[in-house]
Design a protein around this nucleic acid. Structure first.
Lengths: 354, 354
DNA sequence: ATCCTCCGTGTAATCGATTCCACGAGGAGG
DNA sequence: CCTCCTCGTGGAATCGATTACACGGAGGAT
């Protein structure tokens, strides 16, 4: 593969001049510039990013460590992140932690070894020493979606409290009284926070949240299934279940089906995180939608600020309730419009939210 | 950040010795080794992967350019690829082409600039000159899922012909006669191939595939919707629709619903690519399942071979039909088992295929 | 005892870029 | 006409690792 020296030889100038042309440094004569450019084209030269990074100590690369690639919420987050990063001239390397702290650490470590310019993390656990080290070493870092309490790092996330309150009100209004939640791991902020919000909202209506109605999940479908089964085995099973993420909702739906029960007639189901498929499940699932794209974009912008040495503020965006049929009919059940939404691509149609 | 020189100083040896310890070269005395290791631990030293790559001319990194991150098929492929690569000591950088050739080229270019050791591509178009250049430059390359005809590159893919034949037989047996397909872009092999397989299978039963029954899609949900609408506007609409990927199936389902029609009573629906959500849609969708994990793994292994300078053979794995209710009841519709499958994680339960 | 090996180690070149510094030419100002 | 800038340019150091080569000392063979 041709190097800068070959280009210099071909153009009859020094490597310094070639480099200057490539980084469009002002002081190069138009003549030299033209010849260099010609040589570059002739040889099909492409600068070696590795060498460049070594010298300049920047890779123009961002790391993104997400909790689970198979979760549509995170993939759309990743997509937004990559998009915004690209417009800012960065590449993104994605690490998938699969909700496993060791894997998360593995990725953080390799990313750091590669000297990425900044890191976006949605931590799978509280307290990874690696991440703490990174913070201490002043690696530009921004938390997205989840965070680690007590660590001085900007957080870009969405606040579901209001939406959870809406959801609870919705459920109670319809007539559900025994509300249960399938929580995420307590080691994640989103895990504990959503339970808190749920409990608080219930409290405001004078409804208690018994321990038996708190299922312990790990944000994976399988755990949702198990938690739902445990609920159904209760002497007095809940009449509504709120899953703290979409995968656990899927598992719960599985479990409920397997018992031959019907959603929403026998039991209501709602989920945190809205995804395209929820429109098409049987029944369509009521969910709390996060502004995923905005989150991704805001996270990248915050990280870019940190890299530039500034101190960006944390960003909190609101989530909102999207009512569908899985909790029972509150509104006339007939589609107001024929539910054109697939909240998928930000395509022509401005996705039907309720 | 501490460099190898700092470690050498701390351990009282030369950088050469440190390097030898790090790459566990045989000729280092146990004493030096111990002191170097101690110094490494004391300083929290981590070798700079950038510098190492520059010197050794290998990055231990693979590039993976997929067509669409929002498509669950590709994310599970990506997950399998990353997993296998990790066990082989490679990292993976994922580039999302979003089905757009320019974006695909953008990613191929940056990946090449980063001097990745090998590239896995699922090409969005026939003939990207960039990819052709890469082939000519002898960049280790393997196509996965899709490929570019006439290019001498190993291909790892799954052959859906048999499964498509099964599907067609299934549809005809149930009583459907007017079978239509929503195709992917003709510029992709999977786009044209699936149509061919479908047409051929129909031919074997003496059924024709009129042009009006071939919808042109682009593997995105929106295009599936439009194609389905066009079908429904036909004087004699099809009574069964086969979507060449899961996203277009989703769009088609949308469109059918929007007309107030029912699947499968008014029209049957089937899709290429099986995904967890298809178990839970209304109705559950009959699909052709690819062995995604095996594909990902095989692709990485083939690429590793190519990197090692050997010439791996192409790999073709069979896909198979998974019958669900979206084409009408052929078997007793009552769940044989309560359909425990979420073909998601390769979890304890060995996913229920029919 | 002498010589040859082998072993452990260090010095320095190298990978491919960027960039500081010096230098010569040419133009402006005195 | 001389001096001083400015501009364009090239030489060479540098980034942080790996590794070829040289070298001294210890141990074995003769």
């Amino acid at each position: 593969m041709a190097g800068i020296k070959d280009v210099a030889a071909e153009a009859g100038v020094s490597v310094a001049t070639v480099s200057r042309v490539l980084n469009d440094h002002p002081s190069v004569s138009p003549a030299s510039r033209a010849r260099v450019l010609a040589a570059v084209a002739a040889l099909g030269y492409r600068p070696n990013a590795v060498a460049r990074s070594l010298r300049t100590d920047q890779t123009r690369t961002l790391g993104l460590v997400i909790s689970d690639v198979l979760n549509p919420y995170f993939t759309s987050l990743a997509r937004a992140v990559e998009e915004e990063a690209r417009t800012l001239g960065y590449s993104v390397i994605i690490g998938n932690a699969d909700e496993r702290p060791e894997l998360q650490d593995h990725h953080v470590r390799t990313l750091l070894d590669r000297r990425i310019d900044g890191l976006l993390v949605s931590p799978t656990d509280r307290g990874s020493p690696l991440i703490l080290d990174a913070v201490r070493a002043a690696t530009p870092l921004v938390f997205v979606d989840r965070w680690i309490p007590g660590v001085e790092v900007p957080v870009v996330r969405s606040d579901g409290r209001a939406a959870v309150r809406d959801l609870v009100a919705h459920l109670l209004r319809i007539g559900h009284r025994r509300l249960a939640i399938i929580a995420g791991p307590a080691t994640t902020t989103t895990g504990s926070e959503r339970v808190d919000a749920f409990r608080t909202a219930l409290g405001e209506h004078g409804v208690a949240l018994p321990d038996a109605y708190i299922g312990q999940g790990d944000f994976q479908a399988e755990s949702g299934r198990r938690a739902a089964e445990r609920f159904l085995d209760l002497p007095e099973p809940p009449d509504a279940v709120f899953a703290a993420d979409n995968l656990m909702a899927l598992g719960a739906l599985d479990a409920i089906r397997a018992r031959g029960l019907s959603v929403p007639d026998d039991i209501a189901l709602a989920a945190f995180d809205d995804i395209p498929w929820f429109v098409h499940t049987d029944p369509p699932i009521t969910a709390i939608a996060q502004p995923t794209d905005e989150l991704g974009r805001a996270a990248v912008r915050a990280l870019a600020e940190r890299i530039a040495g500034r101190v960006p503020p944390s960003v909190t965006l609101p989530a909102r309730l999207v009512v569908r049929r899985s909790c029972g009919a509150e509104f006339p059940p007939a589609p107001r419009r024929p539910d054109p939404s697939t909240p998928h691509r930000s395509a022509p149609n401005p996705s039907a939210r309720t």
